[in-house]
């Protein structure tokens, strides 16, 4: 039971990170209808920028950890958001009204560009950081000496996710921008006719998605203590799987899917085999889609005849 509880905690933490990335996929899909293959790499860039800004801040003599973390968070969100904006501007906007596969391939190309840009600029080796947030709580000490641990960093990841999600939900449901986004999702032409600046709204979607990915990147850095140029691919595919599992286009679905993938992966590693954890996640995706072709929370596609 203790072991189970521990895996549950680990799974939720991992799932939070996936969920944050998945939201970026699902938002872009909802509005532009394309799979933004470069989003996983945006997450990777976010991790790198968090790492570099952290190093710079420490060497500048800052010592207050909470202040450093706050600055790092803001800097990485801002710069990564600019990456999202630029990519949309350069690689996707010219193809907005083109054929469905064109923006997707452009996105795959962009993903190669980002992966290799960071390999060229920062080197291929894994970048480790010493644990920044340490300590934690022992929730329950089992009779066999197994203790359920809840570390501070885990608390922080989940808290950050909740706060970011709350902000994000407020943004989408209560603000002008959120309304514009929902309008564009329904019908871009109509939205434009009613005075919504579609270009700007789509740009903002990429900006917000990238900022969320930056949060995920920073959490990943703090939680696992490393970044490398290739981490965007695997995390991206998992997060995209999560978005589809939850029902692509659905924001709560993305978070739910993220948690589901995180839990599946953790429990499979804990009880079966670590090697096949990704196989398990992908297999469950396939099985779910067979029975629910539009994911867990996706709207069923009504076929208009």
């Amino acid at each position: 039971m203790d072991y189970f509880a521990q895996q549950l905690i680990n799974g939720l933490v991992l799932g939070s990170i996936y969920g944050l990335i998945a939201i970026g996929y699902t938002m872009v899909y909802g509005i532009v209808g394309m799979i933004n293959f470069a989003h996983g790499d945006i997450f990777m860039i976010g991790g790198f920028i968090a790492l570099i800004s952290f190093l710079v801040l420490v060497s500048l003599g800052l010592t207050a950890i909470p202040l450093i973390l706050l600055i790092v968070l803001l800097v990485s969100m801002a710069i990564t958001a600019l990456y999202g904006w630029t990519i949309e501007r350069i690689a996707y906007r010219p193809l907005r009204h083109s054929f469905r596969l064109a923006p997707m391939l452009s996105a795959i190309g962009m993903s190669f560009v980002l992966t290799n840009f960071s390999q060229v600029s920062q080197g291929a080796r894994v970048k480790p950081v010493p644990p920044i947030i340490t300590g934690g709580y022992t929730l329950h000490e089992g009779p066999e000496g197994f203790a359920v641990q809840l570390s501070n960093i885990q608390i922080m990841v989940v808290l950050a996710t909740v706060v970011v999600l709350a902000l994000f939900t407020w943004l989408v449901s209560r603000t002008r921008l959120g309304r514009d986004m929902r309008a564009c999702e329904q019908d871009q032409t109509m939205a434009a006719l009613l005075g919504v600046d579609v270009d700007r709204t789509i740009s903002m979607t990429f900006v917000i998605g990238a900022a969320l990915a930056a949060v995920a990147g920073m959490m990943y850095l703090l939680y696992y203590g490393l970044v490398d140029f290739f981490m965007g691919f695997v995390a991206g595919i998992k997060a995209f799987t999560a978005a589809v599992l939850g029902g692509i286009g659905s924001l709560p679905g993305a978070m739910l899917g993220g948690l589901a993938i995180g839990l599946i992966e953790t429990f499979w590693s804990a009880y079966f085999s670590v090697e096949y954890k990704d196989v398990a996640a992908f297999s469950i995706l396939i099985v779910v889609l067979i029975f629910m072709p539009t994911g867990l929370l996706g709207r069923p596609e009504v076929e208009k005849v």
Partner: peptide
Amino acid sequence: QYRMLVFGIAMVLLMI
């Protein structure tokens, strides 16, 4: 080192 980078850029440009 730059091979995949150039390849990715070429892919984007060709698509556009």
